[in-house]
Design a protein around this nucleic acid. Structure first.
Length: 430
DNA sequence: AACTCTGTTGTT
DNA sequence: AACAACAGAGT
């Protein structure tokens, strides 16, 4: 390695300075570059067998800096591979790709020694390689039979193979397109249709939607079609921690992967531009885990005028009406533990009386739905009111005061909708 | 700062 | 094309 005259080699750090051992660094052009320390963890780029990165790689890495990075930004450099990160926590995360502390439990597996950078990756690996019944994410465009153990791959498949367009819940640094944020035109273009929920497409799903269930007109700009709802066993721990929609779909996702075949309520939704992201508001302390979130994201302004709150927001297939939003194509992974009695033309009674209700059988108290709350906030203390069928059957939610964040939606409008919904439950079952 | 989700990109 | 690994960014 050549060093020019404008460089200097110095000792930096030390436990009293930055908590790290003193290291030899090279300073050049205002940059501080740690010198190689003979680490056994020298960064191997993706392929673990690849050779150590060379100077070209360092330059490429530098070139990848974003334009938005200001010159004064303090970058945090990995001592092993010299990669830089804007946030310390990103460096911390990156360093895990060297230490790989999460080990596979299978002794014969190479990842028993090697490990994974994150628990999630380790779990995903176990699902991929060592699970006797790995979770599967299925393509929801019938009759496509694609399935993947990876949710992201399934999503990618549906986007590429079927033109599925959905609004990301995170921009990941990319600017949201106008179409997403403001214009109804693009997201509502009905071109390719929208994948149906798992309940509609997977043979294993017992709760098939009735083809005769009418669309909810104003909520079906995609021709999304028959709403359906599935009630899967609530057994094991409930580890999904979010349900989101993107204007077209609701999506469950899991806080831990792989997900055991948990059960959950699943439904197809008419694609109102609604994002559910604060499930705690609907399921306070009902045994689904404290991180189970569902909430509402307000309709995009341009679409709001089309939002007909006089129409039922949620419905379900069969003869049931549950106050549940319909779900998304990604309401996955595949759930293999279905109760045989969960048939479409049966009520919930049989199933709900048994283990399916266990998750709802927490102690509870009665509350008033939308009890006196400050304007703009809805305190929703009796979640069971959202699920009168459950309630009638003896299912109960735990109590817990939750609030919707009214920055996400128009509280009055939603309340109106919910009133309609509840009214529908009482008098308009299909 | 950890966790989470998602996009990008390398590898198979 | 699909799988896999990891980084960027939001919560």
């Amino acid at each position: 390695m050549d060093y020019s005259r404008d460089e200097k080699i110095t000792l930096r750090g030390g436990l009293s300075h930055n908590g790290r051992p003193v290291e030899l660094v090279r300073e050049k052009d205002g940059k501080v570059i740690p010198l190689a320390i003979g680490s056994e963890n020298a960064y191997k780029k993706r392929a673990l067998s690849e050779e150590d990165i060379d100077d070209d790689e360092v330059l490429r890495s530098m070139a990848r800096r974003r334009k938005s990075d200001k010159p004064g930004d303090v970058l945090h450099m990995c001592r092993d591979c010299k990669k830089e990160f804007k946030r310390p926590c990103d460096l911390t995360k990156h360093e895990k790709t060297h230490s790989r502390p999460w080990k596979c439990s299978e002794e014969k597996c190479k990842y028993f020694e090697l490990g994974w950078p994150t628990e999630k990756e380790r779990d995903r690996h176990v699902n991929d390689k060592h699970s006797s019944a790995p979770a599967q994410y299925k393509c929801l465009y019938p009759p496509c039979t694609y399935a993947s153990k990876r949710e992201s791959n399934c999503k990618q498949h549906m986007e590429k193979a079927h033109g599925w367009e959905y609004v990301r819940s995170k921009s990941n640094g990319r600017k949201k397109s106008q179409a997403v944020s403001n214009s109804p035109a693009t997201p509502l273009t009905p071109f390719l249709g929208t994948p149906q929920s798992t309940a509609l497409t997977t043979p294993i799903t017992p709760f098939m939607a009735s083809p005769s269930v009418p669309l909810i007109n104003d909520f079906d700009p995609y021709g999304f079609g028959t709403p359906a709802i599935s009630l899967h066993n609530f057994q094991d721990d409930f580890r999904r921690d979010s349900i989101t929609t993107d204007g077209t779909h609701l999506t469950y996702s899991s806080g831990n992967s792989p997900v055991e075949p948990n059960s959950f309520v699943e439904a197809a939704v008419t694609p109102a531009d609604v994002t559910i992201d604060h499930t705690d508001a609907l399921f306070p302390n009902c045994g689904m885990g404290s991180n189970f979130n569902m909430g509402f994201q307000q309709h995009t302004p341009a679409l709001s005028t089309d939002f007909n709150f006089n129409e039922p927001m949620f419905t379900m297939a069969s003869n049931q009406t549950l106050g549940l939003p319909q779900l998304s194509p990604m309401a996955q992974p595949d759930l293999t533990l279905f109760s045989p009695q969960m048939q479409i033309d049966e009520g919930f009674g049989d199933a709900m009386d048994t283990l399916d209700m266990q998750a709802f059988s927490r102690p509870t108290e009665d509350f008033t739905l939308f009890d006196a709350a400050p304007a703009g906030n809805m305190s929703m203390n009796n979640t069971a009111n959202f699920f009168p069928d459950f309630n009638q059957l003896g299912g109960q939610f735990g109590n817990g005061a939750q609030q919707f964040d009214n920055t996400y939606y128009n509280a009055n409008a939603l309340e109106t909708t919910l009133d309609e919904m509840l009214g529908l439950n009482n008098s308009n079952q299909q």
